[in-house]
Design a protein around this nucleic acid. Structure first.
Lengths: 233, 233
DNA sequence: GCACCCGCTGAGAAGAAGCTGAGAATTTCC
DNA sequence: GGAAATTCTCAGCTTCTTCTCAGCGGGTGC
């Protein structure tokens, strides 16, 4: 469920696993991006030529060229297109560290869609500066995407990483009813194989931390899902 | 039963159980959709080629291809046709996860026709954006399909899932007299084997919750059924 | 007017959905 | 390497929901 903001950016997804290409294309497109895909390094260079992406989502492990080579060639023409890399968790490659200094970023597999779209938006924000600021607010609840800080009524609340992602997802979709399945698919890693109950647990944590004062904002719609909204029923 | 609105969309129903195909074709057609049907994956691809559906209603369990394969091939041509999947309730299949990512949705069997058509309309609304908004109104009674909120005279009323579906059905068919049997067949799951009396019970609940002020809107037509309308007759 | 039928509703049993504390497993951090 | 934090599961509990039943009462037909 995309937070439709500006007329959004053009992305190029480069990834050899067809399932992940499918996953990313569908959800990023639905999030409002204009998405093109490529399944090899050579392919990526061709498609980039036509599609002129504003940002590239790039798996560092490709069958032909490696991701860094792809970037080198993409940028050979002088264009400094920003990148979000997809890497394996155990990849301690220094090259990534080096590249992220240039305003790029990386996400380790398996990732959650929430995490990836947040990174994409953050990189676009830094490079294009046409993106909305990375601070979400709803009532007296505030969430800063840059610093990972959350405030309720002005006082700072400390959240675990998952709690933070869940709250961000709820805030981006404030007013919309989200099913447990939907939340699971966006906030948890795509390889998570648990039950809906984990969402109930985390909603319980969140309520204790950020929703223990009136007016309550985290509401359960029995049989449907959860919604962040100001008014009570 | 049909809320005749726009000239409505073309659907392709793909399902191997002939009873369900029959049930769906008849009722979706009656709801105003232009419906084609297919009983296998291969069949689906052929029919889709001729019929060019705006949306596919697709059982994930098919005798030949599985539903995901059908979708992959349908979309191979670059067309991003939206889908409402039909799944078994206990389907813990990994592939089921990720279904709602591209704006698609799913309904678990056994479903109610009311539920399925609501999902179909919601998906069309999100993808085509030519559908009427998901908010029904009748007099000072309002029902929001997105947020599952119901208001009478401006104040929010909380309904259980079945109460909500029943009221939506009545509102979509406002002014039309609906028999108890008709209501049972549309609002309750298709495998429900109870008596008409359940409808009386739920009408009683609804009256208490949403029709306890003048002017009364939920009228009984003795020996025939119920109707939602403003004036007495 | 009387009897009958239909619909209304309260009570309650059975089940489903959701919440939370406890604890095991895992990861992170120092 | 150990402590702390975090993630995830599970089971008990509570609350809400569904559905049935039976008695009541009002309309309808004779």
């Amino acid at each position: 469920m995309g937070a439709m903001t500006t007329p959004e950016a053009r992305l190029l997804v480069v990834e050899d696993d067809p399932n992940i290409v499918e996953l990313l294309s569908a959800s990023l497109r639905y999030a409002g991006f204009d998405v093109a895909a490529a399944m090899s390094g050579a392919d990526a260079l061709t498609v980039a030529g036509e599609h002129k992406p504003d940002l590239v989502v790039l798996d560092v492990m490709l069958p032909d060229l490696d991701g860094f080579e792809v970037i080198r060639r993409l940028r050979a023409g002088g264009q400094r297109v920003p990148v979000v890399f997809l890497t394996a968790r155990d990849n301690t490659d220094d090259k990534i560290r080096g590249l992220t200094l240039g305003g790029d970023d990386y996400v380790t597999k398996p990732f959650s869609l929430e995490e990836l779209t947040a990174r994409i938006r953050a990189v676009l924000r830094r490079t294009h500066s046409a993106e909305p600021a990375g601070r979400l607010a709803f009532g007296d609840l505030e969430l800063d995407e840059e610093t990972h800080e959350v405030f309720r009524g002005g006082s700072r609340i400390s959240l675990s990483p998952t709690e933070f992602k869940l709250l961000r997802y709820l805030m981006i979709n404030a007013g919309r009813v989200l099913s447990k399945r939907q939340i699971l698919e966006h906030v948890w890693n795509y390889d998570f194989r648990g039950e809906d109950n984990i969402v109930e647990s985390y909603m319980s944590y969140l309520r204790r931390k950020v929703d223990n004062t009136e007016p309550r904002m985290l509401h359960t719609i029995r049989g449907v899902g959860y919604v962040l909204r100001a008014t009570d029923a």
